[in-house]
Write a protein that binds this DNA or RNA. Structure first.
Lengths: 239, 239
DNA sequence: CTTCAACATTAGACTATGCTAATTTGAGGA
DNA sequence: TCCTCAAATTAGCATAGTCTAATGTTGAAG
């Protein structure tokens, strides 16, 4: 006998898990994930997505509106958050316990997230002190599937004078990740926007508390997602 | 395009890796691995094995003698040893660094061994001090694919108190083979030497973990070839 | 030397996942 | 309104891996 996605409690395959995760990321702001965007994110051809969409839809993991896109159901969202929890805990564990550098963990976590058990993830999380954020600053879903939704603003759009906490570096490109790390622009760092060139030019910032200045081109600033920190917030102690 | 096992350097799939590992264990003493034994070890139907054998053979990973069995080629052996290294290091890491107990570690390692990178395994090995043996006493292959071959000792010569794994029954005599099988003395079984009569008399052993005693006359004990197992662990989970 | 049972293999079907090529759909521009 | 084009889908095929049922092989017992 062969288990299929139509069974009661089918084990999700690697591919299914990848699709759900991609759909989660693409429909994060409440909208639909488009077939072509899913295809691009997973590096498969669009018809492959159509085929998988059909199966996921029959399995009750997504809602499909033909020619519009897809959204996760509650069940699909739960499965996606489980994968995201795994991914982020793995990234954290690999960097903090096994000396991986920030740029190199993603691919490893991408493979491991499909193979680890819930027990292993919980043990890793325990060894790390049950952290709430991963090395990129992304919130880690809890074992029960809850995730902190943060309002983030791109550094390129932040107002001059604003105090910000860098929370998310929105790229997987190892070269960029390494560059940001060199500049001290890692999640959790505090900074203030000191200037921006007119007509959407580069943003100049100062690191807190050192005051070291950095100039970030618009292209790069666009992927630095920050949380606005009230200027009265002096007691901020990082995490 | 789709990668196949006939390509130059195909990535080995999870199934392929499992087959190679099983064949390695079954043909350990230089013999052939039988289709039905592979099927039993992997819990698949015999025709599935025949199908895979065809593919592995075309890929140059095994030699197939129809109706006789299969043997690993040098290339297949390399791949198998790589998996065994991964498995043993993972088991060690999970028990020593993450508090797993020996009963639970096997299944986790069995899944992870297909997903980890060589780099991660080497980092784990480093964190453990590059161990040479796993807690079962089995040697861990090096990153370059060398493994210490266990020296076999005849049960008639094994020291009293020694813990042994029966590895080879050195006779073709059907009567003897049937007798050994009846006594539960088949390759892979674990036992301890509890006594030996003076002047080269019969050896008394206890099966592990049942403790059932057996008395084996010298004539018979001479053909039971065993590997000495360091008494380091509690609870064998197999390999 | 024949027969038979155990083991191995082949035949044929099915799911999951991917691809390319062809077709359909829907939304914006003329 | 109608047309066109990009996006989505369907059609058709391939490979990996699994299964059951049917068929072949081999070696051991009589």
């Amino acid at each position: 006998m062969h288990a299929t996605l139509r069974d009661a409690n089918p084990p999700l395959t690697r591919s299914v898990e990848d699709y759900l995760k991609a759909i989660y990321h693409l429909s994060n702001q409440g909208g639909f994930a488009a077939t072509s965007d899913i295809a691009a994110m997973l590096e498969v051809a669009p018809p492959s997505v159509s085929g998988m969409v059909k199966r996921l839809s029959e399995a009750g993991l997504i809602e499909h509106v033909p020619y519009r896109g897809v959204q996760l159901t509650a069940q699909g969202r739960r499965a996606a958050l489980r994968m995201i929890r795994r991914h982020r805990i793995l990234e954290l564990y690999l960097t903090q316990q096994l000396g991986y550098d920030w740029g190199g963990v993603h691919a490893e976590a991408e493979r491991l997230e499909h193979a680890v058990s819930d027990e292993l993830i919980d043990r890793m999380a325990g060894a790390l002190g049950n952290p709430q954020y991963d090395p990129h600053g992304d919130p880690i879903p809890t074992a029960t599937g809850e995730i902190e939704e943060a309002e983030l603003v791109s550094l390129a759009d932040a107002g001059v004078g604003t105090k910000l906490e860098l929370r998310q570096v929105g790229t997987q490109d190892p070269a960029r990740l390494r560059y940001f790390a060199d500049q001290g622009l890692t999640p959790g760092v505090l900074l203030t926007v000191t200037a921006r060139q007119p007509f959407n030019g580069p943003t100049t910032i100062g690191l807190v508390p050192s005051g070291d200045p950095r100039v970030v081109g618009r292209e790069l600033a666009l992927v630095l997602w920050c949380r606005e920190v009230p200027v009265t917030d002096r007691g901020y102690a990082g995490r």
